[in-house]
Design a protein around this nucleic acid. Structure first.
Lengths: 137, 137
DNA sequence: CTACATGCAAATGCTTTGCAACCTA
DNA sequence: TAGGTTGCAAAGCATTTGCATGTAG
């Protein structure tokens, strides 16, 4: 069901997973590529993308559904929320418990079949906050 | 403050705004382009993008912060939530009141300076739900 | 008149894909 | 050895940008 295809354990796949788990941040494919390349200098960006996709499908990692133009990946596969810096795009976990009753509230008032929800906070990280001084743009 | 520059009322800008308000959906730049081109055949996609940006800065429309790879625009400038079809990317309003206490909950437990939040529901629109029959992929 | 705006095309940034060579099970 | 996987390069797609020309105020 979850594994329609025979997945293989390749060096590339292993290292990508290890490095992502060690980072403990929410890196983009390119950030993962840069780190992994230290151990596997010949790896290609395409392979990183393909493996992140595969690992997500396997349930080993989580592909984040965030606004913004780049995809990010999370070693933590549990459902949780995030907060993103509008200025530098840094992403942290948002320490707030999952809202379980939300989807039920919507149930009777939408024609959609609800699958889930994403909650994302927007803000300024300490560094950017310092640089800007105040929130105005 | 909101209008650092002298904005001009051009034919293009007018038509884009009118058409967006008439659509009452959550169109992408390209969808708006297709519609506007019926009235202004020589308009360019670049102009559509530039004007959507300007109109959003002017507060006439809202640029939506949704996950997924394309930006969408909303004639409704009030804060509200959305539900997006995972399959066809259709976006509807989510009829649920804004959660006002959310950001306060986070206030003490994050190092970020919170600006706001986005809540997005994910689901299947009636059409896609019919086609698929069930949620499994 | 003079900024701001437009059309056009080229460029950008992120992601995906085709393909031959290469491995893993 | 069969079929998934890789590296490489090219393609894809949404969006942005440079520039000469056009136009609103």
């Amino acid at each position: 069901m979850f594994q329609e295809k025979n997945r293989r354990i390749t060096k590339q796949r292993q290292v990508i997973l290890e490095e992502l788990r060690q980072l403990k941040t929410h890196p983009s494919a390119d950030e993962i590529y840069k780190v992994v390349r230290r151990r596997l200098p010949r790896i290609s960006l395409g392979t990183v993308y393909r493996n992140l996709e595969v690992l997500a499908k396997m349930g080993e990692i989580q592909k984040l559904e965030l606004s913004g133009s780049i995809k990010r990946y999370d070693w933590n596969t549990n459902k949780h929320y995030h907060i993103r810096c509008v200025r530098c795009d840094r992403v942290d976990d948002a320490p707030i418990a999952p809202l379980k009753q939300l989807e039920g509230e919507l149930y009777e008032s939408t024609v959609f079949e609800i699958i889930g929800h994403n909650l994302e906070f927007i803000g300024l990280c300490p560094e950017c906050s310092k640089k800007i001084g105040t929130i105005d743009h």
